[in-house]
Design a protein around this nucleic acid. Sequence first.
DNA 1: GTACTTAGATACTATTTGGTATCTGTATTG
DNA 2: CAATACAGATACCAAATAGTATCTAAGTAC
Lengths: 205, 205
Amino acid sequence: MPRAIRRRLSREEKRQETKQKLLRSAEQLFNHGGYEKASVDLIAENAGFSKGAFYSNFESKEAIFLELLESSKRRNIEALESLLAQEMSAEELLLAIRNYQAGPDSDFDYAQLAMEFQLQASRDATFAKAYAKLNRNYRDSLIGVLEKLYAKLGRTPPAPVKDLADILMATIAGLLLQAAEAPANVRKRLISEAMLLILGISERK
Amino acid sequence: MPRAIRRRLSREEKRQETKQKLLRSAEQLFNHGGYEKASVDLIAENAGFSKGAFYSNFESKEAIFLELLESSKRRNIEALESLLAQEMSAEELLLAIRNYQAGPDSDFDYAQLAMEFQLQASRDATFAKAYAKLNRNYRDSLIGVLEKLYAKLGRTPPAPVKDLADILMATIAGLLLQAAEAPANVRKRLISEAMLLILGISERK
DNA sequence: GTACTTAGATACTATTTGGTATCTGTATTG
DNA sequence: CAATACAGATACCAAATAGTATCTAAGTAC
């Protein structure tokens, strides 16, 4: 175990780099053609490596899929949490939420990948458990943001925020998938509109 | 061509029966495990036939998938159209819409299958075209129903009905998929809630 | 610099896939 | 009832798949 003590781990560093490349390759391919169509061979090749590299870094295809799922969800949750932490006016918060999923920062690709996860989860018990757990965290964060939003706006939510969170997540996912071929601005507009409707803040009362 | 004139087509009848069995088998399997996982062999076997029967009735796996898509969408559209045709009060119409997708008549399975279609469509140009076309019809029907609804209610929609239709479709699909493991009554409640929020008719003003 | 470790390449396997070619039994036709 | 047509079964195929076993070149330790 001479790992943690040593100074320059050029070896380990490279390994991590390879792993990252494989992850990004897999993300791309899963997103593009779905779980089944993204073969291990292809993932490796697309990253500029061979299958050997893949199995040297991941236990299985399922494993890389789950790892991807976890990291995406984590990133998403972090974005929400940081939103929560910031001090901002009601209008600012509203705007931020409105642009959250539809903004240029959060890639649309993620949504499709998430959909792929969701579908796999609805079919595979292993995935289902992992997905449910991660989703719960995400949902909780979203609920927090919504509560903060309504508090700042001085309004009462039109429905339990738990439900609003669920509906919001579903709608965004659905819209992104539905309009996969539509131009980005159409998607954005629809998503914004949907969020305002669901949150009940479309017209300034 | 001694087909259309003759009396009792017991042969042709049987053929159609076989085809229907294959279709239902495919629907089941596509829904359960997705497009890729439902092999032609499996579809045939599950219907009680051999692969020979399959290829005697369908040109390819893609073909049966598309045929399934078409018939499901058609059924859905017909349901909407018949809703449109009926004379009913605003409340009745509202209730009917509220229960439309969430009702016991429309099987939840369909939604998951539709999702599978949608995902495939987002990845395959052939599917994309077919799906877009069918979806357009469905959307148009839904728009008609919504217009009728608002007319009867004597209200103005909170957003262009076109957008409302898109959002509604996406939300329902998203919720059904998201809550695939949740009990049916939870799904129903969420879907109802979402519809009311999106349509802007949650509280009786 | 020599011995050891290991990231990653190559080669291979067993299995599954969609699709085809061919065959067979039975319903239809004359 | 004999000839034919055809629904569907059987037997195949080439390609692709996830995963494994083995090897090699380069990094690390002494």
